[in-house]
Computed example of a mutant assay.
Amino acid sequence: MNCIIVDDEPLARQEMQALINDVSDIEILGMFPNAPSAIKFLETNSVDVIFLDIEMPMVTGLQFASQLPKNTLVIFTTAYPKYALESYELDAIDYLLKPVDKSRLQKAINKAETYKKLLSDETEKNTLESNTGDYLIIKSERRFFRINFADIKYIEGLKDYVVIYTGNQKLITAMNLKTIHQKIPHGTFLRVSKSYVVNINFIDSFDHHNIYLGENEVPLGDVYKKEFFRIYAGGSLNPEG
């Protein structure tokens, strides 16, 4: 897997380069001070992952990310937490706050590698075969899996795929999040952002920005917040804060 680094701060680019080399063998093809120079590079080069700053001159990282092809994965690196929800709306792989922690970077790269495999020819044929009664039949990695609705903790969408998380499995199938959400019980599963559906029975706690399911944390999108508070909290809390 390869990557590029896009950041308008020279020191930030150097620090990210050193961190990536320290935790992974991912190949760094280049480093760029702004989006236009990176765009020019992408015209003649294939890049798997872009480590992308957000607040940059000319073209912001968010604007740049919205123009990228589906098979290019983005990991945002920024000093500002306020862009996190918007980044997930763009199907970003991860959102790292500066100074970037090595363990968080390693986790983000591992996730990118998982999705790189997901987008490969080997996994493109995975699909949802059927849903019957209280379970789904999933074809994943050339095998069929029966997944009980009650065992699904949450479902993550990435472009034209979903990842279904249970207590001990992570299954990938070729289907968008909207379609699979239509095939599972809406009373139990809530859409909480553009990229996530959660099983309310696994929710431990939540705040105005995130939902916590054991060790897992998923973002709560502004568009879905009011409905989540109405259904899960019975409308007793103010979604605005």
Rank of each mutant, 00 (worst) to 15 (best):
N110Y: 01
N201R: 05
V100P: 08
T179E: 14
N131W: 14
K40Y: 04
L136G: 07
P33V: 09
L68S: 10
L213Y: 09
V163E: 13
I4Y: 03
L73P: 10
V100D: 01
E156Q: 04
A38H: 00
S87H: 06
L68G: 10
S236Y: 07
V100I: 13
D207C: 09
H181L: 00
N199F: 02
P10H: 09
P219L: 08
Y161S: 01
S193E: 07
D48T: 04
L177F: 02
F189G: 07
S193L: 00
V59L: 11
N176S: 05
D53K: 05
Q14S: 02
L73I: 02
F32N: 11
L171H: 10
I137G: 04
N110E: 02
D91Y: 01
A79R: 04
L220W: 01
Q182D: 14
T188E: 14
L213N: 04
K82W: 02
A12P: 00
S195I: 02
P36L: 11
F228V: 08
A233T: 05
A174C: 15
K117Y: 12
T127N: 09
T132R: 12
Y115V: 05
I211Q: 00
A18F: 11
I184F: 03
L68F: 05
S103N: 14
K125S: 15
N199Y: 01
V100T: 08
V74S: 10
G241I: 08
I172N: 12
D204V: 06
A12R: 10
Y165F: 15
N201F: 08
